[in-house]
Design a protein around this nucleic acid. Structure first.
Lengths: 242, 242
DNA sequence: TCAATAGTGTCTTTCAGACAGTATTTC
DNA sequence: GAAATACTGTCTGAAAGACACTATTGA
């Protein structure tokens, strides 16, 4: 290899500039007791830490020695807190400014994850579930995490209007009425059964797994997401998607 | 103020962790000669710089002394290169890993901007327009900027399917046929005139500004975006929005 | 049989798409 | 009047919403 490579011949010089802190924050969602929940952790009570004891989104500094990229870092932190892999993990965006962290200029990369509900005793010790309604309206989260949670929730809700996202909040096999309930829980409104079924089945992303017995009622067909299926985009949003 | 404030009583300790580089990259779009163009700059030819002389998206390191937040940083860099404010500026997301910059682990925050076309002699000296088709298919951009450009372009195209975004690529007053042409240029396909007009006018975000004379043809009504109007979301996407 | 839930059928509504037809300008 | 472009009207079709109806289970 004689020709000049991308790297300059001499060692590339590391520029001498001030670097912001770089963190990841995660909004991990699951449905518990017919409510959308978000995973929180309490900040350490060490005096030197900002917001000691406050509830916060899981996350923290990127470890540039351990994390090959941002997504891997998000996955690592998710696994540390929940012991499970995400059914779905997507970046919401990033927020950075000089005021969000009292320790200095800081930029965070925000992800949201969907998992089926994990029992609290299987979570990491410092982690717990809270209904999002509660987390948004009645809880002061550390840093700007209330705002970050709202960002993630808005993204989730808006995508639920026109995608198959809620299927990632369930463990297969699940029934169409169960799936519809998840949609209703996330969107906080009722949906029509008939059009929901037509739309869902027409998208052709579910495979039947056999009847599931109900409780003294008619059994429902069980479904799972077909293998190698990406997120489904429906041709029209459910309604006021704006 | 006696009660404990958010900052700990003693100075909060700055944690001793390695920090990645933090940068902004901008995909600045405008329509020139009936083609969607993107603003590029050539990397400096200094030997110590990575990718010397290569075309790249405008951007660079955050200056934590100058930039209060990420958006302000994006605005600053936009203004430096184009001398104009953006009609529309939105974050696409962020990309960070250990390999995208030969100088070390680096995270960039990607924005896209829409501006009406700025003549090349009014741009900053090192900046120039390139048709996106050309920039994507026939140009090797510095760093991972080809990938970043694609991210921004995908976001733009997908939002054009169901929003009023293209209106921000025009200087008012403009006519509906002109606006339709911008949609067609961005989406690279023809649209039906009648449904385009119905949909656009029904959204009620345009105000008439009086007839605009054509070239030996019937004059067309001029429009501008109504004041204090946010981006409009249409009830349905144009077609295969997926 | 009844209660409860699963699932279907039918009609309406809302918009995008196709396409033909009319209107207004300059030459 | 011709050419060019602006604008309108009518029909079709796809998919959501409302809502009544049938189907299948356990007690």
């Amino acid at each position: 290899m004689k020709k000049t490579s991308k790297r300059a011949n001499k060692e590339t010089v590391v520029p001498n500039i001030k670097r912001p802190f770089t963190t990841i924050d995660l909004a991990i969602f699951a449905v518990r007791d017919v409510k959308l929940n978000v995973l929180l952790v309490n900040r350490p009570k060490t005096a030197n830490d900002p917001f000691p004891g406050s509830p916060a989104l899981p996350g923290g500094f990127i470890d540039i020695d351990k994390d090959p990229d941002l997504l891997a870092c998000a996955n690592r932190k998710l696994l540390e807190k929940t012991k499970v892999e995400a059914n779905y993990l997507e970046q919401v965006g990033s927020v950075g400014n000089g005021t969000r962290d009292p320790r200095g200029w800081s930029a965070t990369h925000v992800y949201f994850a969907l998992i089926p509900c994990v029992d609290e005793q299987n979570l990491s010790k410092d982690a717990y579930w809270m209904p999002v309604d509660n987390a948004i309206n009645r809880t002061k989260l550390a840093f700007d995490h209330s705002k970050l949670l709202l960002l993630a929730l808005d993204r989730l809700r808006s995508k639920v209007e026109y995608t198959s996202l809620p299927a990632y909040l369930l463990t297969p096999p699940f029934t169409l009425p169960q799936l519809q309930q998840i949609y209703e829980v996330v969107l906080d409104r009722q949906l029509d059964k008939s059009s929901f079924r037509t739309r869902t089945l027409a998208a052709n992303y579910l495979a039947e797994t056999g009847l599931i017995r109900g409780d003294a009622t008619r059994p429902a067909m069980g479904y799972k997401i077909k293998q190698n299926t990406d997120l489904i985009f429906f041709p029209r949003p459910l309604s006021g998607a704006s």
